[in-house]
Amino acid sequence: MTDNVRTVVETTEKEPADKDVPRSLFSDAWRELKHRPMFWISLGMILFFVVMAAVPSLFTRGDPTEAILKLGSTPPSSSQWFGRDLQGYDIYTRTIYGARASILVGVFATLLTSAIGVVIGVIAAFYGGILDTIMMRITDIFFAIPFLLGGILFMSSFPNTKDSTYFAVVGKVVLVLSILGWPSIARLMRGSVLQVKPNDYVQAARALGASPWRVIRSHILPNAWAPVIVVSMINLGAFISAEASLSFLGIGLTYPAISWGVAISDALTYIRTAPWMLLFPSLFLSLAVLAFIMLGDVIRDAFDPKTR
């Protein structure tokens, strides 16, 4: 008899099990996300650009450093879809190879800003007091330096030379974007942790004698980093765009890096005589930025039920 009842209870419980099992914030968001076409479209675009950055030879057999001066400024045709620029570089090949620098700058600047911002934000909010005050004033200082201005200053203090390696050229741009970009993440993380800290489970963990590191790692972080993920995703797009702006001012990436930003700023000089030079790199750049912003947008909607 009792056995019978138990099986009945079990079967009735099994059917809606999907709804009753307590779900984490992330699996909750995932259930929402997988039904959104926007999520899959932006993810697909990002994947496309990441593959392009990793293995550009999949997309083109051309050599991005091969300049055929004789063919300089050939407009797009059936044999050269994107045309050639003034130096005779094939724009299609250059655009494909340009993905790497832009994606590298975006990804590493995002990782670095998030790392700095999260550490500072968590420490400031968790320990509070004088540490919080000092850290937030430092954050304010970096926040008050205008972004482009700080970038120009930094890049002119450490100019690229003819012998700079690819790593140094890209690393410098990543560094300057990170130095100027972390304050917003730190503020966001601090606010988020302050919201989570007074919760009962955090108090309980501390009362049970958990070390600060354990409380932060297994109780605070999992509940506090959703806003940072969303903003980082949107920032990734913004960093790609910022790299292009620095290149436009002549101080971002330089030779030997091939990048969309450099290609666009070169093309702007010849905008009236060779407009196709501008179209393709800026199209790719805008699509990449768009993909990251769209992904961030969709993820935010999934995390924040209010906007639904």
């Binding site: 292009a244 436009f248 702007l268 800026s282 805008s286 768009l290 912003i293």
Partner: peptide, 22 residues
């Protein structure tokens, strides 16, 4: 609005300068 956000300011600026100005 997404498209506007995705295109860098200097591209919007230079293109509108060429288009409307020249």
């Amino acid at each position: 609005t997404l498209v506007i956000i995705a295109i860098p300011t200097f591209v919007i600026g230079s293109v509108s300068q060429t288009l409307f100005g020249i």
